[in-house]
Design a protein around this nucleic acid. Structure first.
Lengths: 362, 362
DNA sequence: CTGAAAGCGCTTACAG
DNA sequence: CTGAAAGCGCTTACAG
């Protein structure tokens, strides 16, 4: 009933009649061993049911064969799929994955990074929840911990990143709606933090000078694409059609969407800037019993083709989410293995998934 | 540019002018220290930027403050949410979580368990992919590793489990459809493995003797509930309405649903036994342009209220998925802390989420 | 309350 | 190719 004592390499060595050093070499895949001795040691290990203790190995080698992940929220389908990509790569390379959630809270993120550091991960993949205040990330990297950012890239941080072309894909999506004849296109997006100035300032300012998108969060970058498309088509932007939800909450998005659709300025089409916003819009449409696309055209950022199951079908922008994860993991493992080229910002293309459902304005 | 050397407790001790033992006591939260010394050590630690090395601590204490999770597929919303529950509890108790995927493959599951064992997790939470052939789990537990099963419980395994009342909730759901007047109710479920005998045998057999549900997979248990409801209502079961998809694939479910809905025996209502099957059915309904509930009533097992956004709304069975995860984690942590009562099979209730959409048969 | 010593289970130079 | 010794960074008895 009591847990049987674990077998150590010392016991295997004794059983095989060799030193622990030799047993280690025969079992651990390092150093040289004669075939004869190796076989004897392996037989002894099998006989005793020896399992290596990676904790001890980590202590001496200084490497844990583990990567840490700080996701915003694993219960969000985007991160779930990203994690799948990470996990697939990690498994194939014999690495473990430690998962934490930040909930977009800086405090949580710091705690998570702290935990991962104490557990001595060999590197980490993170969704920085604040692209400005990333002092702890800076010191992390200064401390020599390989780090890959995902979905966002903190300003001025010398770390790799894997993101999607937010601005370009949003531009394409909105251009598609404009081309179908829509002139009043709503946008529902998170758009929480802005370094300074109001939304109106932001819109006015970008009409003249191109903003550096590096400093912006994905939702702001997607808004930029929305503005780009309007400028290209020479259609004026109406700020009351731009709706800031303020958080990644489908409930909040639903409320904001209802307000937009019930306002006196009801758009003829709506663009949602991420899967959560899309979720909220769908609820609002169901609440208000609006027919798509007869009464309203919809173009969703739809990470996982959820919306594809909706009746009627809607047009969507599809991100290569699994690829984001696998690419980040591959990059990180390369860094861990000693790849020392300068940090790269990898931007993946999103795909506009045309269906039969963007109609002309009613 | 080179990674600055890590600070160890030895250096902190030197800086504070005490022994490493004392420094450890002041920093590690064990043993006694005078306030004066503790303060001096903490000051030294802060000054040098000391971060404890949990790997070293683990080696000596034999505990890693980490739990391992073997999920079938983190990209499945069910597991993503379960993992959220696990992660929330783990974080609040200072534990890390190592995640692995088995993809319902026994080989993968074994590798995953092996990895977790080598990393010396303090316990693990697992979705056994085979409720019969669980020899490796048996030896795991014999080895003294606290283990909690989730979603399924392997036959005759002396380990805790957290599952939902599959049979009861399916019975209630199907009874609801029967009460609305439906007599031809299709069921779409995974129903892959069966110990022995055909589906027909299974149905015939349960008409007389109650099967022990412990030995069954969730999808079979839900089929049992389907059969229960029919027996209670004295409505004969038609086996051609029972569709075995054979895997947790929404694509396969879609094909099977199309076949069911295009067959000469088209049902007036369909019950889907899990989120993936529900997904597939929705696609089939869109493919065939079937109107719900005018042409077909639908009752879905809908873990995450995905279906709730569908137009029109459908009735669903909602599982307490986050709770499954948090409960499993709490149970596991209690075991790790030394709780030694006999293993418990915890069965959570699923909630029938009535909407306005189950109509009478057309 | 504090320190010297031993030890957790491995790997790593260093001799041979 | 193999072994004796030292050491990774902590914690744990054991004295004092």
């Amino acid at each position: 009933m009591s847990p049987p004592p674990r077998i150590t390499i010392t016991q295997v060595a004794a059983e095989a009649g060799v030193s622990t050093a030799t047993a280690g070499r025969a079992l651990g895949g390092y150093g040289y061993t004669s075939n004869e001795v190796a076989a004897r040691v392996q037989a002894a290990a099998r006989k005793l049911g020896y399992k290596p203790n990676m904790v001890a190995r980590s202590l001496v080698t200084g490497r844990s064969q583990t990567i840490g992940v700080v996701a915003a929220d694993i219960d969000n389908a985007f991160y779930a799929r990203v994690l799948r990509g990470i996990g697939d790569v990690a498994r194939s390379r014999g690495f473990g994955v430690i998962l934490t959630n930040s909930d977009e809270k800086l405090e949580r993120e710091k705690e998570a990074v702290q935990l991962l550091l104490e557990k001595r991960v060999d590197g980490l993949i993170i969704t920085p929840c604040d692209v400005q205040g990333s002092e702890h990330l800076r010191s992390l990297i200064a401390g020599g911990c390989p780090t890959v950012q995902i979905d966002r890239a903190a300003y001025n941080l010398a770390a790799d990143s894997v993101t999607v072309d937010n601005r370009g894909s949003a531009r394409d999506a909105v251009a598609y709606l404009l081309k179908a004849g829509h002139k009043r296109i709503g946008i529902i997006a998170e758009l929480e933090q802005l370094e300074s100035g109001s939304l109106e300032d932001f819109v006015a300012q970008t009409a003249f000078s191109p903003v550096t998108p590096q400093t912006l969060y994905p939702s702001w970058q997607r808004l930029l694409g929305y503005l780009d498309a309007h400028r290209d088509a020479q259609i004026p932007v109406q700020t009351q059609l731009i709706r800031r939800v303020g958080s990644y909450s489908s409930e909040a998005a639903r409320n904001e969407a209802v307000r937009l659709l019930e306002s006196g300025h009801r758009p003829t089409a709506v663009f949602t800037a991420d899967g959560t916003m899309s979720h909220g819009l769908m609820q609002a449409i169901a609440d208000l019993k609006i027919k798509v696309p007869e009464h309203l055209s919809v173009l969703c950022f739809d990470d996982l083709d959820w919306m594809a199951f909706m009746q009627p079908a809607i047009t969507s922008v599809h991100q290569p989410v699994h690829r984001i994860g696998s690419m980040a993991a591959e990059l990180l493992l390369a860094r861990i293995a000693g790849e020392t080229s300068v940090p790269k910002h990898n931007v993946l293309e999103a795909r506009l998934n045309i269906r039969d459902s963007v109609g002309p304005p009613p």
